[in-house]
Amino acid sequence: MQHKRVIFQGRALPYMLVLPQLVITLVFFIWPASQALYQSVLLQDPFGLGSNFVWFENFEDLFADPAYLASFQTTIVFSLGVTALSMVAALVLAAMADRVIRGATGYKTLLIWPYAVAPAVAGVLWWFMFNPSIGVLAYGLQGLGYDWNHYLKGGDAMILVIIAAAWKQVSYNFLFFLAGMQAIPKSLIEAAAIDGAGPVKRFWTIIFPLLSPTTFFLLVVNVVYAFFDTFGIIHATTSGGPAQATTILVFKVYNDGFVGLDLGGSAAQSVILMLIVIALTVMQFRYIERKVEY
C-alpha cells in the first residue's frame, strides 16, 4: 500500500493515533456484524432463554417465505422507480442548466437544497400533500377522476414513497450531471454545431455518451440510496403498508427484528443485505478504476 517516502519514526505513537477509530470500528461495526453472522445460523426464542444451532435453516426459511420474496420484489420496484425518476429529472434539468448563461448559479442554488432535507421529513411532506382528506394533490387527482388513497391502495402508497425518495435525490444527481457536462470540452460541441447538429442531436450523440461514467456512477449511488437510506421515508409514512406493499428489505429487517422479535430471521436478512452492500461497493470501485483509464 502506498505511503510516504519520508516518514516518521515511532513505535507507540502511530498505534495511539489509529486506536480511537479502531476501537469504535471494532466495537460498533465488526463485533455487531459478526454477531449478525453468528445469530443468522441460530434459532433463538424471543425471550433470549435459549438458542439452537440450525445451520442455514434461517436462510432456507427466508427464501421459502413468500413475504420475504415479495419484499425483495418491492425493493426492486422501489429502487428502479426512484433511480429512474430522479436520474431522468436531474438529467433534463442539468442539460438545461448547462445551456443557461445568465442565472445558472441561481438555478443551481434553488435546485440543490433538498439534499439537506432529511428523508423522513421529505416523506412526511409528500404524505401530507397526498393525504386523501386534506392533501392538495389528492384533491387535484380527485378532480381528474382518480380516487387517491395511499391508506388502502398499495400502488398509491408505492408511488407516494417513490416520489418522496426521488424528490430528495434529484438535487444530488443534478449536481453530478451538471459537473459532468461542464467537464466536456466545448470544442467538441462547437465542432458538432458547425457540422449542423442541433441541440437535441448534440445531446444524444456527444454529451450523453461522454457522460456515461457519471451516469454509471450515479446509477450505483442511487440504488444504494434507495436500498439503505430510504428507511426514514418508509417508516415515517406508510410503515411498510398497506398490506406490506411498501415493505422494502431494510424496513423488513427492522420490523422482523424489533417488532416481530424474530432474531435469527432478522440476522439472516442482515447478512443478505451485507452481501448486497458488498456487491454494490465492489461495483463502485470497479467504476473508479475505469474512470482512471478514461
Binding site: 479502531l22 460498533f28 463485533w31 431494510v250 432474531l263 432478522s266
Partner: peptide, 24 residues
C-alpha cells in the same frame, strides 16, 4: 488497520441494526 477501517464502508447501520443495538 487500514482494511479494518475500510470494511466499515460495507456495514451501514441499517444492516446491523439489532446487534449494534445490543452492544449499545
Amino acid at each position: 488497520a487500514f482494511w479494518i477501517i475500510f470494511i466499515t464502508l460495507m456495514l451501514p447501520v441499517e444492516v446491523r441494526i439489532l446487534p449494534t443495538y445490543e452492544v449499545v
